[in-house]
Simulated scan of single mutants.
Amino acid sequence: MTRPVAVLGPGAVGGVFAVRLSLAGNHTIVVAPPETVGMVALAGITVEVDGEVLAARPEVRERLERPVRLLFVAVKAHRLPEALELVDPETVAGGVVVPLLNGLEHLDPIRAHFGPRVAAASLSYFEAYRVGRVQIVQPRPTALVTMASEELSRHELEDAAAIMRGAGIDVDIEEDEKSVLWRKAARLAVLSVATSLTRRPVGALRDDLEWRPRMEAALAEACAVAVADGVNLIPSSQWSLITSMEYDLTTSTARDVAEGRPSELDAIAGSVVRAGERLGVPCPVLSELVSEALAA
Rank of each mutant, 00 (worst) to 15 (best):
V281N: 07
A128K: 08
A77P: 03
L205R: 06
L286T: 08
E105C: 06
L205E: 05
F126W: 13
N232R: 15
V118N: 07
R111W: 00
R66S: 13
L294I: 12
T36G: 10
N102V: 11
M1K: 04
R69M: 04
V13E: 06
V272H: 11
G15M: 12
R154Q: 14
E277R: 11
S192D: 14
E264T: 03
D88H: 13
L86T: 10
D266K: 13
G38M: 06
L265G: 02
A32N: 03
N102T: 11
A120C: 09
D108M: 08
E52Y: 05
Y247P: 00
L157H: 10
G14M: 09
L23N: 06
V7F: 05
D88M: 05
Y125T: 00
D248P: 00
P81I: 02
T243F: 04
G38C: 09
V31Q: 03
A189N: 06
V13C: 04
E264R: 09
V75P: 03
R165D: 01
N232H: 14
P141H: 13
V92N: 05
D256G: 08
N232Y: 13
A55P: 00
A119Y: 01
R61D: 00
E221P: 08
L123K: 07
E221L: 13
H106K: 11
L209M: 02
A55W: 07
V273K: 01
L294C: 06
L86M: 14
V134A: 13
R133M: 12
A128R: 06
V281T: 11
M1R: 11
T251P: 03
A218M: 14
V145Y: 10
S287E: 15
T243R: 15
L64N: 03
M164S: 04
R206M: 02
L100C: 15
V231A: 10
G94F: 07
V134Y: 07
I136L: 07
R187L: 15
E59Y: 02
A228Y: 02
G103F: 14
I173T: 00
T46R: 14
L70V: 06
L21S: 09
R200H: 06
L101C: 11
L241M: 13
G203M: 09
P213Q: 12
P99C: 11
T28R: 00
Q238S: 10
V227F: 13
V75I: 07
